[in-house]
């Protein structure tokens, strides 16, 4: 922890960055995002297993961006988000620094996209065995059972869009749900509006989601949104051999194609 704080002090004092976005104390035992703008505040920084939010979401928030160059305390998902955002031309190289604390508390500073790429390839970027197992549980269910499972969950959706807000890759300044001429997605949170919203969200993140899980954690009514994303992560990997957030310049699974993509379902 002291390593991280010292690093932050050093960067802020040298004016190498204007803000360090990291984790600090939250309510109870929780952790929350803190925005450290002076060396004197660096003592607020914390790092432990409770630090789970993907702080890359703040890279796309105008008020935070306005603060100046940012150092971002990064967990594995954060690094992949940075690369994905870079590949979507949302951030430029050298616009930010990533600070990666390891289990011992030592901090690696990654200053370029190239350095982040080199770090990311060493991570395990596949779905975990537990995640694959959970997915499979639903894949082998009967269709009707799956329908009921999702119908029950979606019927509780409040359309609060916390999932969207928490997602660092849902950065559109005007989301499709806000396009009302015509009204693509019904505004009311009735079962149709909720189903269409959740299908749209999943589709727009296909080939882009980096599996941080913040959507599910954000959902106040506990809809397991991560399952949808993970399903599409696994499909995109199986069919197109593509994984999001691995390189700052990359072809996107859903905006490219291969002439020999599967078409056994097309007659």
């Amino acid at each position: 922890m002291e390593d991280l704080r010292n690093k932050a002090r050093e960067l802020l004092a040298a004016k190498a960055v204007q803000v360090v976005v990291g984790y600090g104390r939250g309510t109870g035992a929780s952790r929350r995002a803190v925005f450290i703008q002076s060396a004197a505040e660096a003592g607020e920084l914390l790092f432990d297993n409770a630090c789970r939010q993907n702080l890359a979401v703040y890279l796309m928030k105008p008020e935070v961006r306005k603060l100046g160059k940012m150092a971002l305390v990064a967990i594995p998902a954060t690094l992949r988000t940075i690369l994905q955002l870079a590949s979507e031309n949302q951030i430029q190289d050298l616009e930010l620094l990533a600070l990666v604390p390891d289990a011992s508390g030592a901090v690696t500073q990654l200053a370029t996209f190239a350095a982040i790429e080199a770090h990311v390839v060493l991570q395990d970027n596949d779905l975990s065995a537990a995640e694959k197992g959970e997915l499979q549980k639903y894949e082998i269910m009967g269709m009707e059972q799956r329908r009921q499972f999702w119908e029950e969950h979606f019927s509780r959706c409040l359309k609060c869009y916390a999932c969207r807000a928490a997602c660092p890759l849902c950065y559109c300044s005007r989301c499709t749900v806000e396009c009302n001429q015509p009204q693509w997605i019904p505004v009311p949170a009735h079962d149709l509006g909720n189903l269409e919203w959740n299908i749209m969200r999943a589709m727009h993140l296909a080939g882009r989601c980096i599996n941080c899980g913040d959507c599910s954690r954000a959902c106040p009514v506990g809809i397991p949104l991560h399952l949808l994303n993970q399903k599409l992560i696994s499909e995109v990997y199986t069919h197109f051999n593509s994984r999001s957030g691995m390189a700052a310049k990359a072809d996107h699974a859903m905006s490219t194609f291969k002439p020999n993509d599967a078409e056994d379902f097309i007659r």
């Binding site: 008020e63 409040l158 359309k159 869009y161 916390a162 807000a165």
Partner: peptide, 17 residues
């Protein structure tokens, strides 16, 4: 207000509950 709300993401969760 800026300092108070830097981490707020602008969703509807708080109002809806």
């Amino acid at each position: 207000w800026e300092k108070q709300s830097l981490r707020c993401l602008g969703c509807g969760a708080c109002a809806y509950v």
